[in-house]
Amino acid sequence: MERRRFLVQGGKATALAAATGGVAWAFHDRIPSRNRTIHVKKIDFEVPGDPLLPGLALARNPDDPVQALRGALDAMGGIRRFVQPGERVTIKPNVGWDRTPEQAANTNPHLVGEMVRLCLAAGASQVIVTDHTCNDPRRTFLRSGIREAVEAAGGTILLPQEEDYVDVAIGGEVLGVWPVLRQAIYTDRFINMPITKHHRLSGCTVGMKNHYGILGGRRGALHQKIDLSIVELARFVRPTLTVVDNTRVLLRSGPQGGSLDDVERRDAVIVATDPVAADARACEFLGLSPEQVGHIAAAHAAKLGTLYYPEAGFAEVP
């Protein structure tokens, strides 16, 4: 072989060998790494407390639940205390199941629509209503009446898809790394709007259990340590407000229901800044005492709020 050709070809071969080795070296990894996990210990949307105002307020109105919501909210200082102009608001009602409003498996659509309207009136730049539904989200948001109510009020529905979740290192015992809805993290205000329902394992599902709806992934596995998972989630997400729909409550066959025989009217709305107190008062509508409900007692013990709700300042609006 000619010397010149030998050198050229040898140079090319060496360059290729170096490049191959370089790529291998650059990507070499001793432990398989999990990518794209973000570390967030707490998503806190609370407003500063006000000693002159109650921690929760309950209002009743058998004719118009919207009036009850307004009454309770006014007793808490009004919407402008919680939503400032220009803020992005995420509202998380319970939209779990392909059920009609009468079946009381999902939050009353009139209340959700009114909450959207109030936030926009307070100057919110956008109001997004979302939930990780159990049944298909298209059907669930449709049949629950929430899509129609929210869109009529000027809000936006987000039907979550795979790419709307981000893996979050929450750092709990059960909730270690878990997929969380982006819309619950990247927002300014978070309003939790549960409905009070029976649940065989947790006793009841009200506000703190409703936070499950910002989680994706294998939620069914959480039921093995349901109380702990609810408490860890309550520690992770601190809502601006918990607005509990007690206009119709589901007494049996929860959380999905189906039969109107399992539904009773209570015509009440609770608005609270203390999520534990909200759940404690609401579970009484199901005939439960908050001390008996595992996750409420555990959340109280973890100092996430008080189950002795009169201590939080309880106002009952006629």
Binding site: C134, H199, R200, L201, H223, Q224, Q256, S259
Partner: peptide, 26 residues
């Protein structure tokens, strides 16, 4: 099944059962 084989609490099938009354009972 977790409650049957491993004595761990789980009611997810009952929770999801859509019939009234539920076909899956506990």
């Amino acid at each position: 099944c977790l409650p049957w084989a491993m004595d761990r609490p789980c009611i997810v099938c009952e929770e999801w059962c859509p019939t009234s009354p539920k076909a899956v009972h506990l």
